[in-house]
Design a protein around this nucleic acid. Structure first.
Lengths: 324, 324
DNA sequence: TACGAGTTGCGTCGATTCATGCGTCGATTT
DNA sequence: AAATCGACGCATGAATCGACGCAACTCGTA
């Protein structure tokens, strides 16, 4: 693979920095050619270049150089705020539930489609308002399949089914509340069970006016499951309060959830990026956000799993005096 | 060079306090970086951080800052005075652990009045959005004093203080949300911990449009603690949904919570009594209800303890063959 | 009940320290 | 000969420093 060995000057020109800077980065941060004999010329392989590219993109987004370098060294291809967001339309992670079939009983049932027996069982327990049974099902599912899978294949379908019924029949409000509560509690239990390592560096918050916090709680539980500490603000967080929280706690990353388009005001993201304690990374998560209206420097994971892996990348970044 | 030399700002963010506070702690209590040349930047080693962490934990538990600092300086890894430390008498109904030195003040704080050190610690933890500390304090309080006492002497005062501040300054919304969530989770944990004996015969529900469900959750947790199973519907339960739930589950008693007068529509109570599956007992709980407007046959406990004892009475009466 | 004293967290201000990108210089590599 | 190397130093803006003061809270006392 040595057919591409770029010289220092070439790389420098490509990145738009001075040659000296490359040398500085090498000796200050260890961010240089993987194999380099002191005294000899530096030869950058494509991998090295990718690392430098990461460094450049991070710093271009305001990340402190020292931290950006650390990040670049250990996660060369870390997903980053791409200047041109992927042309993914915004269908949202809305679970496409088959509303047909699933005939379960005579009266008012919850359509869960082909989401497996557990979902049907959960739906039945919900209809009975049997919180014990609900808890049991959820707990077992989480214990068996983990938070992410449980959320995607069990909870979200059932909640969506309830919501659908609720929208159609204007009934089942109690059921919806009860299940939401149980889910929320289950997630909380997960968080409590997994003692977080260090201080929470990730802040989860709903967008202003956004009422649905369950998906965020799912993310929080998934994070906890992975051993990543976080802070969850909850639903309906005004922008001012969010900024205040960011200012007070200085998180490395902020996740802002928006369920519906009406709550997806990009201004909030802009405000986050412009605030005094600018977070390293800002995530816009949820079906509400429109990819084309996001300000530059905002990452938009498409589902829980992606958000999780991105957050894990954040975790790996140790903090150190940040300047610049 | 120390592999980890955290700057003042980083440490401050980690702890959830302002940078200025770190400096203040240093010069007031001597709680600073072990080696620090005046005029130069402070560099906190892991050991220093541990000391500060101790400080944080102690203050979160209500210890006066001055004393907490003294403690932290000489015993960096001091274990929490959790179960029964020497200088702490039994925190009975009068949690007057130490009458002096528990002052508080400064900046945006939460007024808790003379509600004991635990309340102060909780308020402090809340201000720094430290959910771990919040959980810790609440859990210990519940474990030590039980749900009712904890609610009356710790949680309600603090929540009221936050609400007061919030109403006055329009700030602290995040704090309010976070604490509410933690309280809710703590109650849920209590309910989960105490496996209910039989089928739930008591239904707890918020009045229509009523958003505050925390007091109800407190009642639910207290019931669970006493071994009484219950069903909790949650906030904002429309009358139709309530009746539907009563109809489906046929509870022996229904508790309807109203926080403010605007949600205390007596019609709901009347509807309950007139429904097909008339509950044995209907409770109207909460400050919203007006005694003179309640329909006949509705009981109105004045506080959590009374509601609890009445509910216990219900449970006992169920053991006897009820004459109808 | 009201009031003053003591505590305490934190905002502000001018001065200083630090991190960082890059220019320069003599020696070495290509 | 051109490019680069390692070392050194400089300019600049962000972060921090120390000092001061404020405001809010609690508690003892009148």
């Amino acid at each position: 693979m040595a057919d591409e060995a770029l010289s220092a000057g070439t790389v420098a020109r490509r990145l738009g920095v001075a040659v000296t800077t490359l040398r500085t980065w090498h000796q200050r941060y260890g961010l240089g050619p993987s194999e380099h004999v002191p005294g000899h010329h530096r030869r950058y392989t494509p991998a090295d270049l990718a690392r430098l590219e990461t460094m450049r993109r991070l710093t271009a987004n305001g990340v402190a150089p020292a931290e950006a370098a650390r990040w670049a060294v250990q996660a060369p291809d870390a997903a980053l705020p791409a200047p041109a967001p992927a042309p993914a339309p915004a269908p949202g992670p809305g679970p496409r539930i088959e509303r047909r079939g699933a005939r379960d009983g005579g009266g008012a049932t919850i359509p869960v489609g082909r989401s497996g027996p557990a979902a049907r069982g959960l739906a039945r327990a919900a209809m009975r308002l049997d919180s014990n049974a609900i808890n049991e099902v959820i707990d077992r599912a989480i214990r068996t399949d983990g938070v992410v899978t449980t959320w995607d294949t069990l909870l979200r379908p059932v909640l969506a089914g309830i919501g659908e019924r609720h929208a159609a029949t204007a009934a089942l409000i109690e059921v919806e509340h009860l299940v939401s509560r149980c889910v929320s509690e289950a997630f909380a239990a997960v968080v409590r069970a997994h003692a977080p390592h260090g201080p929470p560096r990730i802040l989860l918050s709903c967008a202003d006016e956004e009422q649905h916090s369950l998906p965020l709680e799912a993310l929080g539980a998934a994070l906890a499951e992975t051993g990543i500490a976080h802070r969850l603000l909850g639903a309906r967080v005004p922008v001012r309060a969010l900024l205040e929280a960011v200012n007070r706690t200085g998180p490395a990353a902020v996740v802002l959830w928006s369920q519906t388009r009406s709550t997806a005001d990009p201004t909030q993201l802009t405000a986050l990026l412009a605030g005094p304690h600018r977070p390293l990374l800002v995530f816009a998560v949820g079906p509400g956000w429109r990819a084309d209206s996001l300000p530059a420097g905002v990452v938009r994971p498409v589902d829980l799993a992606e958000a999780l892996s991105l957050a894990a990348a954040v975790r790996d970044s140790l903090d150190q005096p940040a300047a610049g």
